[in-house]
């Protein structure tokens, strides 16, 4: 329409260059990634340049995009209705992430309860196991694969040693760290609501530190697994599920920590007001989400 002055206060941004560049960056990153992976597999000289270009481009454009959104919000262009759109958006994005992890948890349960018993000689498909690998014993964690000549057996699993000795069990301490960080990020949120800047900065800073501590311990655990236990991605279904679940979780913690660091930076710049702090809230929701995923991991991957 010719006037276009009053859009019922719902801000429809003007044309923007960000999205199409994000699409291009993703294309370069993944297309380059595929070339790189195929070269690695074929034993050719791998070249990762394209992936890195895509990654840098993605970072630059996303930075500009988010900066623009923050700027528009500070100019007062966003109505409460528009902020609700962000709330819906972030909420359902987290739901889709839950479903992503659900696929891996589903694989874990299926492998443990169905595949394992069939390979071990029970149930409908037992004949496969009997015929192919009669010596295989169905014990979880699988430290002795059906065909160890194809998938090298891990020396040891990561399974929990029993509650009494959790004091020296690294995943237990990681659980403590993440649970604590969920509490500290909540205190930071309360500090925004109470307009207490120093409290906000210290609680949020502490949360970021806890996130980093978690990641360091996780790296430590991986080094331990690879170098001392001989547990790797290619040591059969136990290693596969273990590393994929904890690895994708670790990747999400990395993202979450990064988001919280951005929020810390924005807190320094006094971006948050008690009634307008959705950027912070969405990062903190994300943080609670990775925390819940970890709890499921701790119980289903490590303990049971």
């Amino acid at each position: 329409m010719s006037s276009g002055t009053d859009h019922s206060a719902y801000y429809v941004p003007e044309n923007g260059w960000y999205p199409v560049w994000v699409a291009l960056a993703i294309f370069l990153m993944l297309g380059g990634g595929a070339v790189w992976l195929n070269d690695l597999k074929a034993g050719d000289e791998p070249n990762i340049t394209l992936t890195l270009i895509g990654l840098v481009l993605l970072a630059v454009v996303l930075f500009a995009w988010f900066a623009k959104v923050i700027e528009e919000n500070q100019q007062g262009l966003y109505s409460p209705q528009l902020n609700r759109s962000f709330v819906w958006g972030m909420g359902w994005f987290i739901f889709s992430e839950v479903m992503f992890f659900a696929a891996f948890f589903g694989a874990l349960f299926y492998a443990r309860h169905f595949v394992l018993s069939w390979l071990g000689g029970e149930g409908d498909k037992a004949i496969t196991g009997e015929y192919l690998w009669p010596e295989f014993e169905a014990v979880w964690p699988v430290v002795s694969n059906p065909d160890p000549s194809v998938f090298t057996n891990p020396g040891e699993s990561m399974a929990s040693p029993g509650v009494a000795s959790w004091g020296g069990y690294l995943p237990f301490w990681n659980t403590v760290i993440l649970l604590t960080s969920s509490v500290t990020v909540h205190f930071a949120h309360t500090a925004i609501k109470d307009q207490q800047r120093t409290k906000l900065l210290s609680w949020l800073g502490l949360t970021v530190l806890l996130g980093i501590a978690f990641l360091i311990l996780q790296v430590e655990e991986y080094i331990h697994a690879y170098q001392e236990l001989g547990l790797t991605l290619s040591s059969g279904i136990y290693g596969s599920t273990f590393f994929l679940l904890t690895g994708f979780h670790g990747f999400h913690v990395t993202l979450g920590t990064f988001m919280l660091m951005v929020m810390l930076f924005r807190a320094f710049k006094n971006h948050f007001k008690p009634e307008d702090c959705f950027g912070f809230e969405s990062a903190s929701w994300y943080w609670h989400f990775v925390d819940v995923v970890w709890l499921c991991l701790f119980f289903f991957v490590y303990v049971f």
Partner: peptide, 28 residues
């Protein structure tokens, strides 16, 4: 997201030596 999870497991089976869909390693 479940489809994304499925192709991700394929990717790992192909390039990173996992055995989600290979019975020799306890997958299926």
């Amino acid at each position: 997201p479940v489809l994304a999870g499925a192709v991700t497991m394929m990717l790992f089976d192909i390039h990173f030596g996992t055995s989600f869909f290979n019975a020799a390693g306890g997958g299926d």
